[in-house]
């Protein structure tokens, strides 16, 4: 055959003879392995580097501001005297916008996943799933603009008659949720599609209808994958910057009322990092303290999701 010659040349020029099993290590594979190893180490190194870069200035900050003041203080006023560095308003802003986002994203995301996995014909699924994933590709600045220009003035004020500020956590949270829908829908759909058909058949053969089968058999069987999808959605919400920076506002505000403007952790970093900060000043160091807190929160959320994903393999 014509293809034999190149195959032999790849296995090494020094022909070991037809009966020998000895062979030189394939040089091409060595190079590939080396490159992959470098790639793996680089990504680990970058992560470690980011943590170190965050930790240094953050430690400086905590020498001037006690950790407990930072974590439990209720006023965030880093730029005006008397300065106060209680991060709770920022954390609350993040949590409120994310909460609103999840209230939107979970029902729509899971509904879409159930429809795609259990009801849609293969043809509909083939069309809808990529469209849904296209939503995930929209730049978040577009979503933020959409919140400012449509959700707040038109949807909330004109159609629903909700009195909201120009910037508010509600509008930001709603578009945050829209942005997260594809993540939850797509991952949950994967988890539900992975449930063996034999389980559906077993349920239907007992006289269960499709909805019962979906809710009582498929859904519980896929629950760890679905939970992982939701956790990933939460961590995207917590980390999202552009939408909240544009639409939630830049006023730290410890309030449960989502109709008010709020600043989130990411929003604070985005606003402040762009301004003039004297390197080493307290206000400069706040960026790193808030960044580290954000990093820790996302890390915990991601760890939860890793544990959940690992458990999915034990289900069936």
């Amino acid at each position: 055959m014509t293809t034999t010659a190149p195959i032999i040349s790849v296995t090494g020029g020094d022909d070991p003879g037809p009966t020998s099993l000895a062979g030189s290590r394939r040089p091409g594979e060595m190079v590939v392995m080396l490159l992959l190893r470098v790639a793996a180490f680089v990504s680990v190194a970058v992560t470690v580097g980011i943590v170190i870069a965050l930790v240094g200035p953050a430690l400086n900050f905590f020498q001037q501001v006690p950790v407990s003041d930072f974590l439990f203080g209720t006023t965030w006023r880093p730029n005006f005297a008397p300065t106060e560095y209680g991060a709770l308003p920022l954390v609350a802003g993040t949590l409120m916008t994310t909460l609103v986002g999840m209230i939107v994203a979970i029902p729509f995301g899971l509904g879409a996943a159930m429809y795609l996995s259990e009801y849609a014909s293969p043809r509909v699924r083939r069309v809808l799933k990529p469209v849904l994933e296209l939503l995930a590709g929209i730049p978040s600045v577009v979503y933020g603009f959409f919140a400012l220009q449509f959700i707040t003035p038109t949807l909330l004020r004109a159609w629903l008659g909700v009195e909201v500020g120009f910037t508010n956590a509600l509008a930001a949270g709603i578009v945050l949720g829209v942005m997260i829908i594809p993540t939850i829908a797509s991952l949950s759909e994967d988890a539900m599609s992975a449930v063996p058909d034999a389980l559906r058949q077993g349920s239907l053969a007992m006289g269960a209808n499709r909805m019962q089968t979906t809710l009582r058999v498929v859904f519980p069987a896929a629950i760890s994958g679905i939970a992982a999808a939701i956790v990933l959605g939460i961590s995207r919400g917590v980390g999202e910057t552009m939408i909240v920076a544009l639409a939630a506002g830049s006023q730290p505000n410890l309030s449960p009322d989502v109709r008010e403007g709020m600043q989130t952790m990411t929003g604070y970093i985005a606003n402040t990092a762009g301004g003039e900060n004297i390197v080493g000043s307290v206000s400069y160091n706040t960026l790193f303290a808030v960044g580290l807190l954000l990093f820790m929160i996302t890390l915990v959320i991601n760890m939860i999701s890793i544990v959940l994903v690992r458990r999915i393999r034990e289900v069936y």
Partner: peptide, 9 residues
């Protein structure tokens, strides 16, 4: 069914 298919319950 041919293959036992208990629910994951």
């Amino acid at each position: 069914f041919q293959k036992p298919n208990p629910f994951p319950k």
